[in-house]
Design a protein around this nucleic acid. Structure first.
Length: 569
RNA sequence: UGGGGAGUAGCCAAGUGGUAAGGCAGCAGGUUUUGAUCCUGCGUACCGAGGGUUCGAAUCCUUCCUCCCCAACCA
């Protein structure tokens, strides 16, 4: 062993890893680790789910275990196959493979059997109270609950009633099955929680086979136990459901239904992100209200939205890794997400030149015959990405933002009389500003230094500014979509009294530029392809693209220190 | 007058009685034919507050404060 080998950095474990590690050392599950990702198919996955997915799959992988994908489809009213399909696609896109795919609805028969068992053990009963009465009998934080009049009904009668509930003898809402736990508990979840309700909804998988559906608290733990999940990870709001989770499983006193050791529920803080909302309900509202184009609108924090925007699965995983796992309510900075995608794209994506807001430049001292070809590297550091050739001609487009009639302090770009470098081509000096009748700058007349071909002058004079450009005759017109945060406030949910969170929508979250000009090669770009447009940012080809009529989404801009300098002036 | 959680720099987050890791953001410099990348340096964090135990406390005890979740036949 060489002494100068770098010592392995002892990575500190987060609290869930510590639990898993302790179980492993103890040999609790025979060293087995099986987690699960259990979405309800009632919406599209978003970046918050990504944190959970990465946690569940990552943990299992780190300990040589596996993860199941389970659809928690116990409420047919809200669920749909559309969501099932998108969830499967998104988890796969993130880069994870589940060991097996399950549906809570596949367990309906077992749920029923176990419920009968609980009834027979005197642990569950059929309650005839109405929904309002149940609420009233349950009491509140300050008033203890009262027993339902049917709480002490004979087991045989409960069993009979429950079977008739299943058989469809009673109308929707007429009766429920309840767990008999503790109407005096300070934990409201333990005041005889509902296990089953009667509901004649068509289920996307079981159709009309059932008219009674199990509740989450009953179905979830039982599903975990049936799959022999070792660690059942969920978010903080389920913390006080844990006693219930354990209760349902522990009632299997004879071990007829579940293997032991039973799964353990562990709660962590869900992800929140600045400048966006992250709840399925709100996101659904944005879609339904037309505030965005759909679930995959590039402004959406959904995984399909991020994908369309140009985010890579690697960057989303890196983000999930960097935000950490703990029990403290947290709000991650979108800036960290932006950092993660830049970090990833920077090293792997080819560079191109594109002009978002074209400004015509005519090189007055150049003839058409003097036009030449420049060869540019596709990546400044990674030569394996190769080079490409671009035509340089006397009529060009540069970025409108790169010219100022009145140059501010520290302005390195173009201004009357100023000299800049056109990337890879030559040095040019602005000699004349052409304006239209309204006084708008419509073109610049410049002179080039033929000796500076390639970008450097033989006399060694320094030019600070380097601009991107495209040849006017060769450039391809393109549509470019720029995105800003959906909301104008860091926390859109922190609305004042009488204020509507949707009033906080950013009216400028989408800007469409239809006059952009891009390198000719970009005409062949395929949807999903990513590029860095030099000096502008990272862009991905949108599915709306057509051959010869590309559409680009700006995934994220480059860091812009000039805007900071200018802001300070 | 209920139950369950959480409080470490602007945002995350290590730390588990021995004198406050790291990342993002920010600031300052260097390199640069992307004001990008890259490299270097920079934070007296009164560890929610007060008391206590201890030679020594972010870590233990205690009182208090603040924030979050729970009273769907949602998950």
């Amino acid at each position: 062993m060489s002494a100068d080998l770098p010592l392995p950095e002892p990575k500190s474990l987060h609290f869930i890893e510590e639990i898993v590690e302790a179980d492993r050392v103890e040999g609790k599950h025979g060293g087995r680790v099986l987690t699960r990702f259990p979405p309800e198919p009632n919406g599209y996955l978003h970046i918050g789910h990504a944190k959970s997915i990465c946690l569940n799959f990552g943990l299992a992988k780190a300990y040589g275990g596996a993860t199941n994908l389970r659809f928690d489809d116990t409420n047919p009213a809200k669920e749909d196959v559309e969501y099932v399909d998108s969830i499967r696609e998104d988890v796969r896109w993130l880069g994870f493979q589940w060991q097996s795919e399950h549906y809570a609805s596949d367990y309906f028969p077992i749920f029923f059997d176990y419920a009968e068992y609980l009834i027979q053990q005197g642990k569950a009963y059929v309650c005839d109270l109405t929904e309002a009465e149940i609420r009233e009998y349950r009491g509140n934080f300050h008033v203890p609950g009262r027993p339902s009049p049917t709480r002490e009904r004979a087991h045989e009668e409960n069993l009979d009633l429950f079977r008739r509930m299943k058989a469809g003898e009673f109308p929707d809402g007429a009766r429920v099955l309840r767990a008999k736990i503790d109407m005096l508990s300070g934990n409201m979840n333990l005041r005889d929680p509902l296990m089953y309700r009667i509901r004649r909804d068509h289920h996307h998988r079981t159709g009309d086979a059932w008219c009674i559906y199990p509740m989450y608290d009953y179905a979830h733990g039982v599903s975990d136990a049936l799959e022999t999940i070792t660690h059942s990870i969920c978010t903080l709001e389920f913390e006080d459901h844990r006693p219930l989770y354990d209760w349902f499983l522990e009632q299997d006193v004879e071990g007829r239904f579940f293997q032991r050791p039973l799964p353990r529920q562990i709660e962590f803080a869900r992800l929140n992100l600045t400048y966006t909302v992250l709840s399925k309900r709100r996101l659904l509202q944005l879609v339904q209200d037309g505030a965005v184009r759909g679930w995959d609108d590039p402004r959406m924090p959904t995984l399909c939205g991020l994908r369309r925007r140009g985010y890579t699965p690697e960057s989303v995983r890196a983000f999930a890794e960097r935000v950490g796992v703990a029990k403290r309510d947290m709000v991650a900075d979108v800036g960290l997400l932006a950092f993660c995608i830049r970090e990833d794209l920077e090293k792997r994506v080819p560079r191109r030149m594109a002009v978002l807001r074209p400004l015509k430049v005519v090189i007055t001292n150049m003839t058409d015959a003097e036009a030449f070809e420049v060869e540019l590297s596709n990546h400044p550091e990674d030569t394996t990405l190769g080079t490409r050739k671009l035509p340089f001609t006397r009529e060009l487009f540069i970025e409108g933002d790169d010219f100022r009639e009145e140059a501010p302090k520290k302005w390195f770009r173009l201004a009357p009389g100023a000299e800049v470098r056109l990337r890879g081509a030559c040095l040019v000096t602005c000699r004349e500003v052409v304006k239209d009748a309204a006084g708008n700058v419509v073109a610049l007349r410049c002179e080039w230094d033929p000796a500076s071909k390639g970008g450097n002058a033989p006399d060694g004079r320094k030019v600070k500014g380097t601009l991107h450009w495209v040849s006017a005759a060769h450039a391809l017109k393109a549509e470019v979509r720029l995105y800003e945060p959906l909301f104008t406030r860091e926390d859109p949910m922190a609305v004042a009294e009488g204020e509507d969170w949707k009033a906080l929508l950013n009216p400028e979250s989408l800007q469409i530029l239809t006059e952009a000009r891009v390198e000719p090669s970009l005409g062949a770009a395929l949807p999903g392809e990513r590029f860095q447009f030099e000096r502008l940012g990272y862009f991905a080809v949108d599915p709306d693209s057509r051959p010869g009529a590309p559409v680009f989404n700006r995934t994220v801009g480059l860091k812009d220190s000039w805007s900071k300098i200018e802001a300070k002036q």
